[in-house]
Structures are given as structure tokens and as C-alpha cells.
């Protein structure tokens, strides 16, 4: 019954609205008031910006710039020499291989997890959601130790592995596992919100038009999450290449054999080969710079999409 009356009363509304707009033109603009306020307290932002710059300088900018300074202190010659050492080249190769295995596997896993968590309601969903963050919460050293306790000589699977002559700890497979563990959450974490925001509507629409699951994924789901996915990929790759703690526990740190780039930096530094350490560090830092630039581009693209 109320519906009918409500509809009739709606017709009165334009009158009321008209009054409101008139009122607002007479009242002083709130923006003007605010600007006067800001003038009076203008030292606050200056102070805050100052503190931020000093803080970031000490913690971030100066150390980062120092890496480049130290590496090129004696000119480009020694720098190149350092980068052509066999142990260094082997470390780079290992790091690239670790990323080449961990990134695709974590991408596939991350996509499946993100889809299941964003599209399906099931028991233990929120538990699984927090479980994905486990690698963020656990110290990488502990993560490495967990692998040693499982696959090491004294570990649960130790006997089985040894009798079959399979080495995981202090070998490449262990490093892969450690890298996968620490870089696991990024893709899922980036893709879940994008999937949730996109909703299931477009996927359902594709199905009503005859698309099967595979076609729906390639033609509709993937294009709508592409920026989130790419961002997740970049972060996964950065973590996979930069990881120190977990990899260092499981690798045994054998130079020229199981030494990834971050491990090489540490060893070189300890051996008083400061220049070699800084040269390798420059390479890792460049990776970070490239990552940040890509991330910035991604974010800008996403923002443009959102505005549209």
C-alpha cells in the first residue's frame, strides 16, 4: 500500500530540491573558509614534509645512492671486470633460473587461488584468505628452516630422499622451493581485489553467449584482470630475484654452485671484495628501479581505466 502513496508524493520533490540549491548559493563557500585556515597553519605541512625528506634521505636515498657511488668509485673499468667474474655470472644465471621457475608456477597458483577465493563461497574461505599471507608474516629465515626440517638429512622426508639419491637441501631444488614460498602471495593478493571488483557478471554474460570455461577465461576474465596480474607478476619477480634469508638457509651458499645474486653480494662483502659486492648490488638495485618504474606505469594505466 505504501508504494502507491510514495510514488504520488515523489512529484512534490522537485520543489524542495529547488529551495535547497537556492540556499547553497547564498551561504559562504566552505572552500574559502578552509583556505584562510590553511594560511594560518602553513608551518605544519612544511615541518611534516621536512621530517619526511630527512627520514627518507637517511634511511633510503643516501644508502641507495652510496651503492652506485661505491661501485663506480674507481671508474667503469673495475666495475665491468667485477661483472665478468665466473662466480658472479653463475650467480646471475642461478637467480634468473630461480625466477624463471618460481614466477610462472606462482602465477598459475595465484590465479587459481584468486579465482576460487573471489568467485566461490565455501567453508574455510576466510581462513584460506589469511593463510595466503603466511609467507608475508613468517620470517624468511624461519621459512628456510621449515624446508630444512622437512627435506634435510634429519628431516621428515630425509630418509626417502636419501635412499633415492635426491638432494633438495643445499641444492638447486631447495632454493626453488624457498623462492616459491616467499614469493607466493603476490599474484593472488593483487588479483583477488580486481576479480572481486569486476564481479561475475561479465563471465556469466560470456557463458550465456555460449563461451565455455576456457574461452571465458581467455576472452573475458584475463583481459579484465590484466593490470592487476601484471603488477602481481612484477612484485613476484622482484621478490624471487631479491630473496636472501630463506634461500641462504637452504642453499648452503656454495660459491659458483648454489649462490644466487643476493648471496653473492653478501659473500663478496664478507671477503672484503667490497667493489665486487657493490657492483652486484648495483645490478640488484637496477632491478628494483626497473620494477618501480614498471609498477608506476601499471598504476597509471589502472588509474586511467578506473577514471573511464
Amino acid at each position: 500500500m505504501k508504494r502507491g502513496w510514495a510514488k504520488c508524493l515523489d512529484i512534490e520533490q522537485p520543489l524542495i530540491l529547488g529551495e535547497q540549491t537556492e540556499m547553497s548559493t547564498i551561504a559562504p563557500s566552505p572552500r574559502l573558509v578552509k583556505r584562510a585556515d590553511a594560511k594560518r597553519k602553513s608551518w605544519v605541512p612544511t615541518l611534516l614534509i621536512g621530517i619526511t625528506i630527512v627520514y627518507l634521505g637517511l634511511v633510503l636515498y643516501i644508502p641507495a645512492a652510496n651503492v652506485f657511488y661505491q661501485a663506480f668509485k674507481n671508474g667503469i673499468g673495475p666495475f665491468i671486470e667485477n661483472l665478468t667474474q665466473p662466480n658472479f655470472i653463475q650467480a646471475v644465471r642461478l637467480t634468473v633460473m630461480l625466477a624463471a621457475i618460481a614466477v610462472p608456477l606462482n602465477t598459475i597458483f595465484g590465479l587459481c587461488t584468486a579465482w576460487a577465493l573471489a568467485r566461490r563461497q565455501f567453508r574455510g574461505r576466510s581462513f584460506m584468505l589469511s593463510l595466503i599471507d603466511l609467507p608475508f608474516a613468517i620470517s624468511p629465515v624461519v621459512a628456510g628452516l621449515m624446508l630444512v626440517l622437512l627435506y634435510g638429512r634429519q628431516g621428515w622426508f630425509g630418509d626417502v630422499l636419501q635412499s633415492n639419491n635426491i638432494r633438495i637441501i643445499f641444492a638447486f631444488p631447495g632454493m626453488v622451493l624457498a623462492t616459491m614460498f616467499v614469493s607466493m602471495p603476490f599474484v593472488a593478493r593483487e588479483v583477488i581485489p580486481v576479480l572481486e571488483e569486476a564481479g561475475a557478471d561479465q563471465e556469466e554474460a560470456a557463458q550465456t553467449l555460449g563461451a565455455n570455461g576456457w574461452q571465458t577465461f581467455w576472452r573475458v576474465t584475463l583481459p579484465s584482470i590484466r593490470w592487476g596480474l601484471l603488477y602481481g607478476l612484477i612484485l613476484t619477480n622482484a621478490r624471487a630475484m631479491g630473496e636472501f634469508g630463506a634461500v641462504s638457509v637452504v642453499s648452503g651458499n656454495l660459491s659458483g654452485k648454489t649462490q644466487s645474486l643476493p648471496l653473492y653480494v653478501e659473500e663478496a662483502y664478507k671477503q672484503y671484495e667490497t667493489e665486487a659486492a657493490y657492483s652486484a648490488a648495483v645490478l640488484l638495485a637496477l632491478l628494483a628501479v626497473v620494477t618501480l618504474v614498471l609498477k608506476e606505469i601499471m598504476e597509471r594505466k589502472t588509474r586511467i581505466k578506473e577514471v573511464e
Binding site: 561479465q202 554474460a205 557463458q207 579484465s224
Partner: peptide, 21 residues
């Protein structure tokens, strides 16, 4: 029958157009 095999046309409240196409 699955939704793909029913030969129906469906129009959603919020259009559900493919934004990237």
C-alpha cells in the same frame, strides 16, 4: 543443460558489457 547449451539471450541489470571490447 549448461547455460552455454540453452541458446538463451540474457541481459543483466548492470549491462555486464565486456569493458575491454
Amino acid at each position: 543443460r549448461g547455460v552455454q547449451e540453452r541458446n538463451i539471450g540474457f541481459v543483466f541489470q548492470h549491462y555486464a558489457l565486456f569493458k575491454h571490447l
